[in-house]
Amino acid sequence: MASLGWTGGVVVGLIAVTAGLGVLAGRHNVVDTAWGLLFAGVGLAAFVTSQGHGDPVRRWVLVVLAGVWGIRLAVHLGRRSAGRGEDPRYEKLLGSGRAHPFLNAVLKVYAPQAVLAFVISAPLQVGAFEAGRVGPVAVLGVVLWCVGMVFETVGDAQLERYKRWKRAQPPEQVAASVMDRGLWRFTRHPNYFGDACVWWGIFLVAADHWPGVLTVPAPLLMTYLLTRGSGKKTLERSMITRPGYPAYMRRTSGFLPLPPRRAGR
């Protein structure tokens, strides 16, 4: 498919700019902010190159879903990291390559993120070229995407409010405080759960017609990363040492939103 060169070029171009900004900023966690923009860029490239090929409604749906999700995530992560230093994850990852720091960062941070973004965005690239009209499977996908956006957006907002509240309290009074309010009462990771819903929703929009169903590895890979890769598993490895968090883990679902378990169960 000729559009693969364009979508791949967008990913490479954006990741190259991000790497340059990382060098200027002296920290490579800028790639987190660029993560959502990679998908927004792929969605836009697929939309443009599929002109005259794919169903217009599906093309618009996919570019909007990818753009809204990607830009919101980029803005959120950009604000969160503003004025802060390097993420400990990247310090640990890059610690062994000090002789060639930039090459080390490209091989361990930027290149893997670019490859993952290209693979996971397969539903955007394939779905934009499908000529069949939007059907019930695609509608279900949009509904699931909306559910995911609610969990991501509301969950992030609730966590930010909690952090502001915690900073305003005497440290000794909130030492064992854990965010277990709102959506965080039902899942330890409403933002990761929402992220998974978003990408399963985008997949369903593409899977409404052949060959979109063949892109199912994309949401599977994203879900794996969120639950077993750099998402939930990595975060909880650092959080479990904090006072109150082990008890929170025992009573709260790790991913799927469920009613809290009672103490002793």
Rank of each mutant, 00 (worst) to 15 (best):
M222G: 09
V174K: 11
R59L: 12
D32H: 14
I202Q: 04
V139I: 15
A25M: 15
V174D: 02
A111W: 13
E86F: 08
F39W: 13
W69H: 07
A25K: 08
S121H: 02
I71E: 02
Y224S: 01
V11E: 01
W60S: 13
A176P: 04
A175L: 14
L4N: 12
W200K: 02
A175T: 09
I240Q: 14
V64N: 00
S96R: 11
G244N: 07
V126A: 06
V109Y: 01
G254C: 09
I71P: 00
E91W: 00
L204P: 03
L124W: 05
P170E: 05
Q125F: 00
A247C: 02
M179F: 07
A247T: 08
P257R: 04
H53I: 14
R265P: 00
A19N: 04
G8E: 05
K163M: 15
E152Y: 03
N29C: 10
L116D: 00
A74Q: 11
L107R: 13
L256C: 09
I202E: 05
V64T: 11
G95E: 10
A105E: 12
G182I: 13
G85Y: 07
P112Y: 11
Q158S: 06
A114H: 04
F47L: 14
K233Y: 07
V106L: 14
F186W: 15
T234K: 03
L225D: 03
D87F: 13
R250N: 10
P260H: 10
P217W: 07
L258F: 15
V30N: 05
T227E: 01
L107T: 10
P219S: 05
A25S: 14
W184H: 12
D208F: 05
Y248R: 06
V109S: 01
G36I: 01
E172S: 14
I202D: 03
H53Y: 13
K163R: 15
I120Y: 00
A2I: 13
F129W: 12
L38V: 01
R228V: 01
I120T: 09
R228A: 12
H100I: 10
G85T: 10
W35Q: 02
Y192F: 13
W60C: 14
H100P: 00
R59T: 09
A66Y: 00
Y90K: 06
L94F: 06
G26S: 04
E152A: 09
G231L: 10
L183W: 09
P190N: 14
G9F: 05
K232C: 02
G85R: 05
S238H: 13
V42S: 03
P243V: 08
I71L: 10
L24K: 11
P217I: 12
C197D: 07
V174A: 06
K108H: 09
R262T: 11
A25Y: 09
V68N: 02
V119C: 08
A196N: 01
R167E: 15
A45N: 11
V139M: 13
A175R: 15
L38D: 02
S81L: 15
V154T: 04
R181D: 14
V216T: 02
A74N: 04
D32G: 07
D87W: 13
T227N: 13
P88C: 10
I202A: 06
Q113E: 15
K92C: 00
F118R: 02
A218F: 01
